[in-house]
Amino acid sequence: MSQTPRVWRKFTVKSKDGELKLRIQDMPSDRLNDFIDICMKYFIPQETCNKTAVVGEIIGASITKVDKKDDPERNLNFTTKTKEVGASFAIISKLISRYNALKDHKLDIFLNDRGVVVNPKYRGLGLAQMFFNVRRQICHDIGIPLTGAWMTAAGSQKAAARDGWETAYEMTYEDFGKETGIVFENVPPICKYMTGKPLQM
């Protein structure tokens, strides 16, 4: 018998179309295609380096991974079908190499980020901040001392700051562009790595 997905948070927001009752929960196994769909439509094309709330449809996702001190080093230098995808992974690899929260904070375990995406129709309702808050709840509930993420967009930086996340590392996109040979356009001046401590419950 399959395990019922855990519901981390239920909440209500007001949108121009009226009140929405939402929840953030572990992804049900039968919703994988919906999850992939929102990532392909909104996360892949809109996340700066690449250029779950469930109610009827998946309108957002918070993608995380538990990293451990003894895990093998991540290597994004692998063969891709197109040079554009290869270049994207090379940029992400350089970004990841800039800051290592496990080492900097001397941690054995860490809740790491793989991305946050919200359907544009539902942006501006505080969902990203709710995702970041739930990550801190996950840390509390399963005993992980810290979570963190590269906040590459202004919206995610503001949402994380509102939830009490702190900037652990930052760099200008101008400097990062010189390193990667990329001219970043329509981005905030600063790219930040931000960390959040477990909720006190």
Score class of each variant (00 low, 15 high):
Ser2Met: 07
Thr12Leu: 01
Ser15Pro: 07
Ser15Thr: 15
Leu20Cys: 10
Lys21Ile: 04
Arg23Ser: 15
Ser29Asn: 05
Asp30Gly: 01
Asp30Lys: 01
Asp30Phe: 12
Leu32Ala: 08
Asn33Tyr: 08
Asn33Ala: 11
Asp34Thr: 00
Phe35Met: 03
Met40Ile: 02
Phe43Tyr: 03
Pro45Gly: 04
Gln46Val: 00
Glu47Asn: 06
Glu47His: 05
Glu47Cys: 00
Thr48Pro: 00
Thr48Lys: 00
Lys51Gly: 07
Thr52Arg: 02
Val54Thr: 04
Ile58Glu: 09
Ile58Lys: 01
Ile59Arg: 09
Ile59Ala: 00
Gly60His: 03
Ala61Trp: 04
Ser62Gly: 13
Val66Thr: 14
Lys68Gln: 11
Asp70Glu: 14
Asp70Met: 12
Asp71Pro: 06
Arg74Val: 11
Asn75Arg: 10
Leu76Thr: 09
Asn77Arg: 08
Asn77His: 08
Asn77Gly: 01
Thr79Tyr: 05
Thr80Phe: 13
Lys81Pro: 01
Ser88Cys: 11
Ser93Arg: 14
Ser93Met: 02
Lys94Ile: 01
Leu95Arg: 06
Ser97His: 14
Arg98Cys: 15
Tyr99Lys: 01
Tyr99Glu: 03
Tyr99Asp: 07
Ala101Tyr: 04
Leu102Tyr: 12
Lys103Leu: 15
Asp104Pro: 00
His105Thr: 00
His105Gly: 02
Lys106Ile: 07
Leu107Glu: 11
Leu111Phe: 10
Gly115Glu: 00
Gly115Leu: 01
Gly115Val: 12
Val118Tyr: 07
Pro120Val: 06
Lys121Asn: 02
Gly126Leu: 11
Leu127Ile: 15
Met130Ile: 13
Phe131Arg: 00
Asn133Gln: 09
Arg135Met: 12
Gln137Arg: 09
Ile138Leu: 07
Asp141Arg: 10
Ile142Met: 14
Gly143Cys: 11
Gly143Arg: 13
Pro145His: 10
Leu146Asn: 08
Thr147Glu: 14
Gly155Ser: 11
Gln157Thr: 09
Gln157Ile: 15
Lys158Asn: 15
Lys158Ser: 14
Ala160Pro: 12
Asp163Leu: 00
Asp163Thr: 08
Gly164Met: 12
Gly164His: 09
Glu166Met: 14
Ala168Ile: 08
Tyr169Asn: 03
Tyr169Glu: 12
Glu174Gly: 02
Glu174Val: 09
Gly177Met: 13
Lys178Gln: 10
Thr180Ile: 09
Ile182His: 05
Ile182Gln: 07
Phe184Leu: 06
Ile190Leu: 14
Lys192Val: 10
Tyr193Leu: 07
Thr195Arg: 09
Thr195Lys: 13
Thr195Gln: 13
Gly196Gln: 13
Pro198Glu: 02
Pro198Asn: 09
